[in-house]
């Protein structure tokens, strides 16, 4: 692995590994609970946070985390009140926060090159401090998922029943939104605002094609997440093409492969069972 002799490549490798794992873990909940659009919305919302970071001269990732968390809670609060549908709430926050970011960027002259990196990702420009921030955020997200594993599973599958058994379903829903927001922001620098939600959704969607249990889906998702992130990184290095886009397209290839080979034979099998039972009854 002679390409790993460069320090920037080592950092890129670690960053890709981190987001490959975290995005695919959180992605399982996103895909199963149908929160993909919220994911895309949060990614765009973090643009406002990145712009604020440039404005105040703090690390844009940190300001983006705060901004994305506030947006996630805003979306959650608006849709829980039931006055606006969830996708409408996302649509509003999505555009408003993006517009806010654009306004602020307009006030700052000359920062546009760095900003381009946040929009489209620049894995090879990941700094040591970026890595520390992403690393601690990843650790936080993964620890939280482990601690609340069964609760998050329950509210994803059946929130009403979860509430009826006494789980704090609303609080857990906000927790899930928060984990999404953090995951998306910590991956921003690598794949960029435009593409980051793909990295959350695609490995989990790929795993979904192949799994009949929750644990399998989680493990497959992590597997495809790492494979896409590392594979995409290497391909982009050797072909000298954009790393974020390569990672996403690699993940997409796995998705179509899985969809084509999928034992969604599992579904026909299910139908057979129902049929034979109907006859048996």
């Amino acid at each position: 692995m002679d390409i790993l002799q460069y320090a920037f490549m080592q950092r890129a490798f670690v960053a890709a590994l981190l987001i490959g794992v975290v995005c695919s873990v959180v992605g399982v909940y996103v895909v199963l609970k149908g929160l993909s659009f919220i994911g895309a919305g949060l990614a765009h919302a973090s643009f406002g946070g990145v712009a604020l970071g440039f404005l105040f001269g703090i690390n844009p990732i940190l300001s983006a985390v705060l901004f994305a968390l506030l947006t996630a809670w805003g979306i959650g609060w608006t849709s829980q009140r039931g006055e606006v549908k969830e996708d409408t709430a996302v649509g509003i926050f999505f555009a408003a926060t993006m517009a806010f970011g654009i306004l602020i960027i307009g006030l700052l002259h000359g920062y546009n090159i760095d900003l381009f990196g946040y929009l489209f990702g620049s894995l090879l420009a990941v700094s040591k401090s970026d890595l520390w921030i992403s690393g601690s955020l990843s650790l936080f997200v993964l620890t939280t998922v482990v601690i609340f594993y069964k609760e998050l599973l329950f509210i994803t599958f059946d929130p009403e029943m979860a509430a009826a058994t006494g789980l704090p379903a609303t609080a857990l829903y906000y927790l899930l939104l928060s984990l999404m927001a953090i995951t998306i922001v910590l991956s921003l620098k690598v794949v960029g605002i435009i593409l980051v939600s793909a990295l959350v959704i695609i490995p989990a969607a790929t795993a979904y094609q192949l799994s009949d249990t929750f644990r399998k889906m989680m493990l497959y998702s992590i597997f495809f997440g790492i494979l896409s992130a590392i594979g995409g990184l290497f391909i982009s290095y050797y072909l000298d093409i954009a790393s974020g886009a390569t990672i996403v397209l690699t993940a997409t290839c796995f998705f179509f492969l899985a969809a084509a080979l999928s034992p969604k034979r599992r579904r026909p099998k299910g139908l057979n069972v129902i049929r034979s039972n109907a006859i048996g009854d």
Binding site: F148, F157, S211, M217
Partner: peptide
């Protein structure tokens, strides 16, 4: 279509009791 088995679905009935 949720990837969960019968056994784990039934286990969920105990999650509230188990606590965090």
């Amino acid at each position: 279509t949720f990837p969960v088995t019968v056994f784990n679905t039934v286990m969920m009935g105990l999650f509230g009791q188990m606590g965090l």
